[in-house]
């Protein structure tokens, strides 16, 4: 949740890796079907021309392999940091596109949280405002009680709480990520 930038990076890297592995797999299948040269499918497992070639060029191959793997390790570390790093919180939201009129993101967070937590079927809610001051984004995580009507609560959050936020900010297109979960607790009952 709330990691759109990291999700995009992850998705892109996985697509590239998937394409590379699919190409390698396709090449092996093609070689096995004797598309490139005949006799490949009848070779033994230990008859490995790649290992023989590396053995013959080990003076320069291994330093280059070490450098490439170090680079790969650094990229993997950056990837991990990008995934684990939370999106930057917004301090003040600009109302008029400048610093003359601002709304504290904590004020918006509290107002939204209080409204959503007042809905029937909501156990608790957590709101986060992040992104740029002129282009804020809202993340809402809501835990519902076990007996909540999920579609009803979701509809109410979208039609009322989030509509109020958009109306207050005069930003009908403000992006919102809504996460709904169900807790193990039932809602309060009056008998």
């Amino acid at each position: 949740m709330l990691r759109g930038h990291a999700d995009r990076t992850t998705r892109l890297i996985l697509i590239v890796l998937g394409a590379i592995f699919a190409a390698i797999g396709g090449a092996i299948i093609a070689a096995n079907l004797s598309v490139y040269a005949s006799g490949f499918s009848s070779r033994t497992l230990l008859e490995n021309p790649a290992a023989s070639w590396i053995g013959g060029h080990s003076t320069w191959f291994w330093p280059i392999a070490a450098a490439a793997l170090t680079l790969l390790g650094v990229l993997s570390l950056l990837w991990l940091v990008a995934i684990l790093r939370p999106a930057r919180k917004t301090g003040d939201i600009s109302i008029d596109g400048s610093a003359r009129t601002t709304l504290g993101s904590a004020a918006l967070r509290d107002a939204l949280t209080n409204e959503i937590q007042g809905y029937r079927g909501v156990q608790n809610a957590k709101v986060r405002v992040y992104g740029e001051p002129t282009e804020p984004k809202i993340g809402v995580r809501v835990n519902l009680t076990q007996d909540a009507r999920v579609a009803e609560v979701r509809d109410r959050i979208e039609r009322q709480a989030l509509a109020h936020a958009r109306e207050a900010l005069d930003a009908p297109e403000i992006p919102v990520i809504l996460d709904l979960g169900v807790s193990g607790k039932t809602g309060p009952r009056v008998e």
């Binding site: 504290g104 004020a107 509290d110």
Partner: peptide
């Protein structure tokens, strides 16, 4: 010359 308005709370 300048009126800076900070809305720091939203009241219900």
């Amino acid at each position: 010359a300048r009126t800076r308005i900070s809305v720091t709370d939203l009241v219900v």
